[in-house]
């Protein structure tokens, strides 16, 4: 069942086209992550769902009905803002209870208390309920923000980079918790981020946004392995995909019309050109190059290789013997290369 959708939604701000003909269908219970850099139109897309912006063109549906012209209050969605979603003049409890106290919702005081306590328990902020929100740490504040959305059971959760202001460790913790809670509640979430790790780990499907357009929407795996174009290919993977001329790396048969070849670092095969201990190996396959740097990250090692003046990242095993300055031969794992035409679309 489709829980929410945008149909060719366009939103302009003066000259800027913030959202450009985006069509997107979110299934019930699905976790969709919109990924894109700053200014890609992520926030505006969420605001279109919430009714905080009205599209210039296109339609919005939520729970099967057309809500394009309805105000935010009538859509029954919850929005977690990037920042500033907690009221500094209220306590944690009051902040969590705020959505339930909205006129027309008619929730009894006892029910409010029960629900707020449940959510506080779920998010592990129960001991802080009486505190002012200004006395909380960043991680606690973010939990309360998410809690404010969870106290209700809305049709749709919209989350605008809710973890972006936290440090790495907290972000990871909250990410895991969020995923767990979403599964437990069967919540439908549209989540916005510019962090590919968040997108990869949270999403059932990732939507890649570029300058207001939805470039591709698919499972993280498909977006990673079969990106729609260069832009989508570059959004996922760290280090980024290597882009080289079709002839720069020995990639076998290049299809006609290919202007660039993309090779993920893990698909670059690197072998030393000279045998170790002076013993000559069989001459390695591939184009000659030289190792510029080697970075050890524990579980993996990343080498930057100079191939005919072009720099290419390669993922090496943790126990590699390659070191800086070594002459190497680089090739591509068969079938792993991605081909892009002159417009950037994948062939």
């Amino acid at each position: 069942m489709i829980k929410a959708s945008l149909t060719s939604a366009t939103k302009r701000f003066g000259e800027t086209v913030a959202v450009d003909g985006v069509s997107l269908e979110v299934e019930d219970g699905e976790f969709v992550v919109l990924l894109g850099p700053t200014g890609a139109g992520k926030t505006t897309t969420l605001r279109l769902f919430a009714g905080l912006e009205t599209p210039d063109k296109g339609r919005v549906t939520i729970a099967g009905s057309d809500v394009t012209r309805l105000g935010p209050a009538e859509r029954d969605v919850a929005f977690v803002f990037q920042q500033y979603s907690l009221y500094p003049h209220l306590t944690v409890f009051e902040n969590l209870a705020f959505p339930l106290k909205a006129p027309g919702r008619r929730v009894s005081a006892a029910q409010i208390r029960k629900r707020v306590e449940e959510i506080a328990e779920l998010l592990r902020i129960a001991p802080k309920l009486k505190n002012r929100v200004t006395a909380l740490s960043g991680g606690e504040m973010q939990r309360v923000s998410i809690g404010r959305a969870l106290v209700r059971e809305p049709n749709l959760f919209l989350m605008d980079e809710p973890l972006s202001s936290l440090d790495a460790k907290l972000r990871e913790d909250l990410r895991l918790e969020l995923k767990r809670i979403q599964r437990d509640l069967g919540a439908t979430i549209v989540y916005v981020t510019h962090d590919q790790l968040e997108a990869m780990t949270l999403a059932d499907r990732i939507g890649v946004l570029a300058e207001g357009r939805l470039v591709q929407i698919d499972t993280p795996r498909v977006v990673y392995e079969r990106p729609a174009n260069i832009y989508a290919a570059q959004r996922l993977g760290s280090p980024q995909i290597n882009l080289v001329a079709p002839t720069a790396l020995a990639v076998g048969e290049v299809p006609g019309g290919a202007a660039q070849v993309g090779v993920r670092p893990e698909d670059v095969v690197v072998a030393p050109r000279e045998g170790t201990n002076g013993v000559a190996n069989a001459p390695p396959k591939g184009v000659p190059g030289e190792i510029l740097t080697v970075e050890h990250f524990g579980v993996e090692t990343i080498a930057l290789i100079d191939i005919g003046g072009r720099q290419v990242h390669a993922l090496l095993g943790p126990r590699t013997t390659l070191t800086q300055g070594m002459p190497v031969a680089a090739s591509v794992r068969p079938g792993a290369a991605l081909y892009f035409d002159a417009t950037g679309a994948r062939l």
Binding site: L52, A73, F79, A102, G104, R148
Partner: peptide, 15 residues
Amino acid sequence: IPREYEEAAVVDGYT
């Protein structure tokens, strides 16, 4: 006062 405060309230069902 950031507008987000009011927007959050409006999304939550307040006028």
